[in-house]
Amino acid sequence: MASRVLIFFIRHASLVRPLSEWGKLRMARDMAKLELAVGQNFVILHHFYSRGVEKLQSPTQRNKLTPLQYLLWLDSQGKDQIWKCVRATLDDYAAEVRVRGDKEFSPVYPLMLRIGSALPEKTVSQKS
């Protein structure tokens, strides 16, 4: 979805010609807002919990928090801490699957792992 949003933005932005100085500033501001919104992969990760099996607990369930408490916690944390929290739920789920002797994981498990594993790397490279 994020890829599609970026493609549409670029397509539409390239159609605006000529671009005044004010237009260039507005385009830069819009692109910065879009980058911030698309960079919020944690929204996507959290959505995957609704698509996963019951044994894959959300951070809210795992930490026995109300949704409001969890949202407030999210607002106060950096990406690396949020990923650690999400990763803990994935690790718990994987351990439970292995203990039960199951051969397959929920289809969302590898997706969440792949998306989440890339997040801290981006955070570190953005700080450099």
Score class of each variant (00 low, 15 high):
residue 39 G to H: 03
residue 71 L to S: 10
residue 21 E to V: 12
residue 107 P to E: 13
residue 82 I to E: 00
residue 99 V to F: 10
residue 75 D to N: 06
residue 107 P to F: 15
residue 96 E to L: 10
residue 72 L to A: 07
residue 26 R to D: 06
residue 45 L to I: 12
residue 99 V to R: 11
residue 93 Y to N: 02
residue 42 F to G: 04
residue 61 Q to C: 09
residue 38 V to Q: 04
residue 68 L to D: 06
residue 56 L to M: 12
residue 82 I to K: 02
residue 38 V to F: 04
residue 111 L to N: 07
residue 28 A to P: 00
residue 70 Y to L: 10
residue 103 K to F: 08
residue 44 I to R: 08
residue 111 L to H: 11
residue 88 A to T: 09
residue 92 D to P: 00
residue 56 L to R: 02
residue 112 M to Q: 01
residue 62 R to T: 10
residue 55 K to R: 14
residue 106 S to W: 06
residue 74 L to S: 04
residue 56 L to G: 02
residue 34 L to Q: 01
residue 95 A to F: 05
residue 42 F to D: 09
residue 83 W to Y: 09
residue 69 Q to T: 02
residue 57 Q to T: 08
residue 51 R to K: 13
residue 23 G to R: 06
residue 51 R to C: 11
residue 95 A to P: 00
residue 108 V to I: 15
residue 63 N to H: 13
residue 109 Y to L: 01
residue 25 L to C: 06
residue 68 L to K: 06
residue 77 Q to F: 05
residue 100 R to L: 13
residue 117 S to P: 00
residue 75 D to R: 08
residue 30 D to Q: 15
residue 41 N to Q: 14
residue 74 L to M: 10
residue 118 A to H: 06
residue 35 E to G: 15
residue 74 L to P: 00
residue 115 I to S: 07
residue 109 Y to W: 07
residue 84 K to D: 07
residue 92 D to W: 03
residue 75 D to V: 01
residue 46 H to G: 09
residue 104 E to C: 05
residue 58 S to Q: 07
residue 104 E to P: 00
residue 55 K to F: 10
residue 96 E to C: 07
residue 68 L to R: 05
residue 41 N to M: 12
residue 25 L to G: 08
residue 53 V to D: 13
residue 98 R to E: 14
residue 69 Q to W: 00
residue 88 A to Q: 12
residue 21 E to M: 11
residue 83 W to G: 01
residue 66 T to S: 15
residue 78 G to T: 05
residue 27 M to Y: 06
residue 37 A to H: 04
residue 68 L to V: 07
residue 107 P to T: 12
residue 64 K to I: 03
residue 86 V to S: 02
residue 115 I to C: 11
residue 83 W to A: 03
residue 64 K to S: 09
residue 26 R to C: 06
residue 108 V to F: 09
residue 84 K to T: 04
residue 98 R to K: 15
residue 65 L to I: 01
residue 65 L to P: 00
residue 73 W to Q: 04
residue 97 V to E: 03
residue 52 G to P: 01
residue 92 D to E: 11
residue 81 Q to A: 11
residue 103 K to N: 06
residue 68 L to E: 10
residue 73 W to I: 03
residue 22 W to K: 10
residue 73 W to G: 01
residue 72 L to H: 07
residue 111 L to W: 11
residue 86 V to K: 01
